[in-house]
Amino acid sequence: MKYTIITGATSGIGYDLSKVFASNKHNLILVSRNKEKLETIKHTLSKEYLIDVLIFTCDLSRSEEINNLCENIISSKVQIEYLVNNAGVGSFGPFYKIPENEDLNIIDLNIRSLTHMTKVFLPYFVEKNHGGILNVSSTAAFSPGPYMAVYYSSKAYVLSLTEALREEVKNKDIKISVLCPGPTDTNFQNNAKVKKADFAKKSMMDSSTVATIAYDGFIKGKTIIIPGFNNKFLAFFSKILPRKLLIKIISKVNGV
């Protein structure tokens, strides 16, 4: 049987991506630190959609745990069809005030773990000339992000890496896509202590809608998937606005 790996699968966009893939009859390998939530989701999805669900607990900010995760998945002798690198974290506030460990954790989870997982499974897809990777970035990738500087920078890395990999495997039967959602109604905002301006809060999208758009775009082979007109508008104008003006706008969006 073929399986789709989804990291950060127990909440937010990751959870809704799990449901969308399950509803389209993909067997799943779900990864998170929370074993209890994984068990609950496994029971729910396997029963409702009649699919097979494997679960693995892993702190993706730790390289040794990623090594163990990948070894365990490979030793399971299952066929991996898709990898969804969804796990991510953010922080909010002036760079010089955020504790060092918080920003380094963002780099470890948003950049290092995504790169690590991709380094393991992309060669596998290339060897089989089939498969795909969906990386979850953000509209934050299109601009500098005052008061969320490391988070925005990490998402720019994800966007850049994905576009580069897409070009490298363009002659192979491998899907490479990047999801760039804008503000989404999940626990991410609270966990990162984000203080969005009121007008930005009103434009938040539902995570289930984001996940559905992401799945459809990925299966169709789109490179960059941006859910929602407002987010497409933001991404477009971030390319043509003067950088100084863009940075001031992002500061306002972030409520500062």
Rank of each mutant, 00 (worst) to 15 (best):
V136G: 06
V136H: 07
S137A: 13
S137Q: 05
S138M: 08
T139I: 11
T139V: 14
T139L: 08
A140M: 04
A140R: 02
F142P: 02
F142I: 07
F142G: 03
S143Y: 12
S143R: 12
P144G: 05
G145S: 04
G145P: 06
P146C: 00
P146I: 04
Y147K: 02
M148A: 09
A149G: 07
A149V: 06
A149Q: 02
V150D: 09
V150G: 10
Y151Q: 02
Y152F: 13
Y152W: 07
S153L: 03
K155L: 00
A156R: 08
A156Q: 03
A156W: 03
Y157H: 09
Y157E: 00
V158A: 01
V158D: 00
L159S: 05
L159D: 01
L159E: 01
S160F: 01
S160E: 00
L161C: 01
T162V: 08
T162R: 09
E163T: 14
E163C: 12
E163W: 10
A164C: 08
A164M: 11
A164D: 00
R166M: 06
R166N: 05
E167W: 09
E167N: 15
E167G: 14
V169Y: 02
N171M: 02
K172E: 02
K172V: 01
D173W: 01
D173R: 03
D173K: 04
D173I: 00
D173A: 01
I174R: 00
I174C: 02
I174H: 01
I176C: 07
S177W: 13
V178R: 11
V178E: 01
L179N: 04
L179W: 11
C180R: 09
C180G: 05
C180F: 14
C180K: 11
P181Q: 10
P181E: 09
G182L: 04
G182T: 09
P183I: 12
P183T: 10
P183K: 00
T184F: 01
T186L: 06
T186D: 11
N187Q: 14
N187G: 10
F188C: 04
N190Y: 12
N190P: 08
N191I: 14
N191G: 15
A192Y: 01
A192Q: 02
K193F: 10
K193M: 14
V194A: 14
A197C: 08
D198H: 13
F199V: 03
S203Q: 13
S203W: 04
S203R: 15
S203G: 14
S203P: 01
M205D: 12
M205F: 06
D206F: 05
S207D: 15
S207H: 11
S208H: 13
S208K: 15
S208V: 10
T209D: 15
V210M: 12
V210E: 12
A211Q: 11
T212W: 15
I213S: 13
I213T: 15
A214R: 15
